[in-house]
């Protein structure tokens, strides 16, 4: 007969004697314990150190020559303080592109996430999820090139805000959809059952109970997606091109400047002023991402006053 787990000693295979309550664990366990903690600590350092190093490096190089006027001077109007112009065009361009991506990828991504979590079951669901994963795996530069062929050339939009926004949106939609789906799936069944038992129609229960509960996860996913989009350069090179002039609200036929291009292009230029601008742009990008995170925390804090405390 197979040995029963937990069988009292005396029946079947005898168990070793009970250990004393006092005393230290064996050296093997102590070494394994120390090693595991050390590895976990090391992993933390490995990801934190470069982040701290990069932020510190950027601040260190950007701070000494920082002029607030970079925010109010476009690239095509050099001043005495800023012989290569400022970053107003790139800052506004990035904000415009981000706003567009939030609108397009936010709505499409969240809606498709809701569909994946609540509706898409069986084979259709697997197909949709598979397609979304393939989309997520396509390199951004390939998407940029496809956008160039289809939108810039095919639709005759030229280099434009709309082309840039759409390509970036397609790039991040899979992230948003996935994080929305995961957040919705984590909503306790008891909430859904409670809503159902009260006779709430499914759409009402989704709005009033389920989405509210999933909001922190959805917002976090959206913010990460936006941060990724804010840091992308390749798709925009093909679709928005670049412009030293202030962006306009024209959707097509007007190139748009953005911060990542400044970081990438100006760093390699010979003039000192331009290299400094590339550090300023990097600093502004980091600040922008931090602001995004702060705003998302605020939104979460305001909507989760009545939330169930997190279970450990």
């Amino acid at each position: 007969m197979a040995r029963m787990v937990g069988a009292p000693a005396g029946e079947g295979t005898p168990l070793p004697a009970l250990p004393p309550l006092q005393g230290s664990p064996g050296w093997r366990r102590r070494v394994a314990n120390r090693l595991a903690w050390a590895l976990a600590g090391l992993a933390l350092v490995v990801i934190l150190a470069p982040a701290v190093w990069i932020v510190a490096g950027v601040v260190y190089r950007a701070a000494p020559h920082w002029h607030w006027s970079v925010l109010t001077t476009p690239g095509d109007r050099p001043t005495l303080a800023l012989p290569s112009g400022g970053l107003e065009n790139a800052v506004l361009g990035t904000l415009l592109i981000m706003a567009g991506v939030t609108l397009v990828a936010g709505s499409i991504g969240v809606l498709s996430g809701i569909h994946l979590a609540e509706q898409a079951r069986g084979r259709v669901g697997d197909l949709l999820r598979g397609a979304s994963e393939v989309l997520a795996g396509i390199p951004s530069i390939v998407l940029g090139y496809v956008g160039y062929i289809a939108l810039v050339v095919g639709f005759h939009w030229g280099y434009s805000l709309l082309a840039g926004v759409l390509v970036l949106a397609v790039f991040v939609v899979p992230y948003v959809a996935k994080s929305t789906e995961v957040a919705l799936r984590q909503v306790p069944t008891s909430y859904r059952e409670g809503a159902e038992a009260l006779g709430m129609p499914p759409g009402y229960a989704l709005r009033r109970v389920v989405l509210r509960t999933a909001l922190p996860g959805i917002t976090t996913g959206l913010i990460v997606a936006l941060a990724v989009a804010a840091g992308e350069t390749a798709p925009l090179l093909y679709t928005a091109n670049y412009s030293d002039a202030l962006p306009t609200l024209h959707l097509t036929h007007h190139s748009v400047g953005y911060l990542t291009d400044v970081v990438w292009t100006f760093f390699n230029l010979p003039s000192r002023a331009e290299v400094q601008l590339s550090y300023d742009a990097a600093l502004l990008l980091i600040v922008l991402v931090m602001l995004l995170i702060a705003v998302s925390r605020l939104v979460i804090g305001l909507t989760q006053r009545h939330a169930e405390p997190a279970r450990g």
Partner: peptide
Amino acid sequence: VGMVFQRPNPFPLSIMENVVAGVRAH
């Protein structure tokens, strides 16, 4: 036909909003 479950399952809304969640939905 109302229902109450084994484990308490209040919604992540205020106490007041919980009591009248169904009243409001209907």
